[in-house]
Simulated assay, not measured.
Amino acid sequence: MRVIIAFLALIAAPLASPTLAQSSMPPAPYAYTQLDDPVLEAEATALMETLRCLKCQSQSIADSDAPMAGDMRHQVRSRLLAGESPDQVRDWLTQRYGDYVSYEPTVSATTWPLFAIPVLLLLIVGAVLLRRLGRRSSDSEMGA
């Protein structure tokens, strides 16, 4: 019995170590540290408030405590520190994580229905209302 337990422990140790190693890694340097330049930090904060945490999905990376949000904050701060503009950083994150990362999506081949369908629905509702109101006014004129 002891041999079986020792054998299972030997097999399970390598399988468990990647998950244990991931949680014990220190956060990225700029995940929780602000930049020294107040102008750059203001740009970073403004940008981080418009980017979605992919793990939390309902919080911006500025508000989230998820490790992935910390990594994204580090990327934003280090890229701004390297001289990239906020738009370049947003484009890089969008290319890496997809359109979903941004709270301000752009019109593209995949997102155009998000912009077109509400407009189409409003036009249909407006047409139905005009038609019904037109009938009521013509019915009231006939009855009078």
Rank of each mutant, 00 (worst) to 15 (best):
V39F: 05
P27E: 14
A127D: 11
A21D: 13
A109V: 12
Y100C: 04
I117M: 12
M1C: 04
V3E: 11
V125W: 12
E84R: 08
A12V: 00
A116M: 09
L51G: 00
T111C: 02
L130H: 14
L54F: 07
S78L: 02
E104I: 13
A62S: 13
E104C: 07
I11F: 07
P113E: 04
A46K: 01
R96P: 11
Q34C: 10
S58V: 13
V107G: 07
I4P: 00
T106A: 09
T50W: 03
L35Y: 05
Y32A: 14
A16N: 03
E43A: 10
R90V: 03
S108K: 02
E41K: 05
Y100T: 09
P118H: 08
G126M: 13
P26H: 09
T94K: 05
L133R: 14
Q75K: 03
P113W: 04
G98F: 00
T19E: 15
A144P: 04
T94L: 02
T50K: 08
T33F: 10
A6M: 01
Y97W: 07
A66T: 09
L123T: 09
A66V: 06
V125K: 08
R135L: 15
M142I: 15
L51R: 00
L8F: 08
D63Y: 10
E104D: 14
R131P: 04
M72L: 07
V89F: 00
V107P: 04
K55Y: 10
C56R: 04
V39Y: 04
V76P: 01
P86Q: 01
P26C: 08
G98V: 00
Y103F: 15
R77L: 05
P105F: 01
D65G: 15
A144F: 08
T110S: 13
Q34T: 10
D87S: 01
A31I: 07
Y97A: 03
Q59F: 14
M48S: 07
L123W: 06
D71V: 04
M48C: 02
S137G: 12
L93K: 00
A13D: 06
L80W: 00
V125Y: 11
S17C: 13
D87P: 00
Y30E: 12
Y103D: 12
G126Q: 11
R96A: 15
H74D: 15
T94P: 03
M1P: 05
V76E: 02
S64P: 08
A144N: 10
Q57R: 11
L93M: 06
V76C: 02
Q57S: 15
A13I: 03
A62R: 04
P113S: 04
D65L: 13
L8H: 03
K55V: 10
D37A: 06
